[in-house]
Amino acid sequence: MNPMFFGQSVSPLFGVYHPPIGGSFLNKAVLVCSPIAQEHNRSYKPIRNFAKLLSNKGYHVLRFDFSGVGDSFGDLRELKFTDWLEDVSLAYNELVDISGVKKVSVFGVRLGGTLAVLSDKYESMEKVVLWEPIQKGGDYVVEMKNMHQQMLVDEMRFNAPRDAADSYENEMLGHIYNKELINELSSVQLDITAMHKKDMELHSNSENLPVSTKKSKNKSTVYLRYEDDAWTDVKRIGDMLLTSAALTNIADEF
């Protein structure tokens, strides 16, 4: 694999490129758009494993951190929503350059998926698979704020409940945003059914993950909420989400 900084040198993004094991003969590539902030922590390892899984199957894979997240440059206190949309374009182009594959597929997790669809690269994408994308930004922000509040009083977390005033302004779950960004997040609306990709397939609330029976290059898949409240359950805030079974299924989508 190849950890690297790419994009603009003044504020580069951090990504990890996984070359196709055995050579690039499949001529396929997948960009992984990870979640942000706290959800980034909770999905880091599964996403890394997913990238390796696809790489072993002969795919080029690039996973990256959005600006202000992980090892990428940038500060949530200064970022705009459009910066993240730009990040998707940068990462998409980077993977095209490295792999030589003209049309890249995308796997987007949570807000990463939403950003992928809203970016100007969406129409170019070969195939899109989304895992529990954020459809209503307002609900998402409210959920994060609620979780933040719950954690302040969680006795498993602190010896004594913290006062809300102890938090930074615009802090949610340990990450400090700027007000405009929170407003922009709140106004995000993603109408899955109106997405222009052909043969959009939706899966939700099923105990048994669906098995892809037919590979179609035009089919895109959205996995809606699988485990209710998993992302918003404070008690599970330390859990890694995305199971191996889920990842294997998702890999098959490509």
């Binding site: 690297m4 900084f5 790419f6 603009q8 040198s9 350059d97």
Partner: peptide, 9 residues
């Protein structure tokens, strides 16, 4: 000086 691969390409 610093330059990313993206900028070089």
């Amino acid at each position: 000086s610093s330059i990313t691969a993206t900028e070089m390409r």
